[in-house]
Simulated scan of single mutants.
Amino acid sequence: MKFTLFCGALAVLLAVGQCDSDFRQMMQECMQSTQVTESDLKDFMASGMQSNAKDNLKCYTKCLMEKQGHLTNGQFNAQALLDTLKNIPQIQDRLEEISSGVNACKDIKGTNDCDTAFKVTMCLKEHKAMPGHH
């Protein structure tokens, strides 16, 4: 499996700094529960992570965010994400910029919890509030 590629790309997408075995396990669980395949993820990454994702990919995003504590009851928990990001050595010099981006995205709501998770993630990407985006 090409999990390293997906792991790295999704770590960036979902603002986590590392892709340890726990995160890989979360990805597997979320892929199974939302019927997202590696091919779906690869296609989405190859498309430049455009906002026209299928519903199951949006729910996959929700699943990962919930498992990380960054989404609770359909509400983005900006502080939980910032707390996670504070522990990533590679981005310490960008924390102020990233915090600004996270705060800009904190009140986004979608048509449902999956849509909210996806819209928040796309907002974070747009504001370069994720590791790996400069």
Rank of each mutant, 00 (worst) to 15 (best):
T116Y: 05
E29D: 10
N77L: 00
E38D: 13
I91P: 07
D93R: 13
H134M: 02
T72I: 14
K106H: 04
K62T: 05
A117Y: 06
L95P: 12
K54W: 02
V120Y: 08
F3A: 06
L124S: 13
E29G: 00
L13R: 08
S47T: 09
L85M: 12
K109S: 06
L64W: 00
D20H: 09
L85V: 09
G74K: 14
N87G: 15
I88H: 09
Y60N: 01
N112P: 04
G110W: 13
L81V: 11
E97W: 11
M49R: 15
D55R: 11
C63W: 00
C114A: 05
D83V: 03
S51V: 05
L5T: 14
E97H: 12
F6L: 08
K54E: 15
D40L: 00
C105I: 10
L5S: 11
Q35P: 03
M49D: 04
D43F: 14
L71T: 08
C59H: 07
E97N: 10
D115Y: 09
D55I: 10
A80F: 13
V36Q: 04
Q25M: 04
N87I: 07
L13Y: 12
G8W: 12
Q68L: 12
L82I: 09
D93Y: 13
G101E: 04
T37N: 04
D55N: 13
K109I: 03
H133A: 10
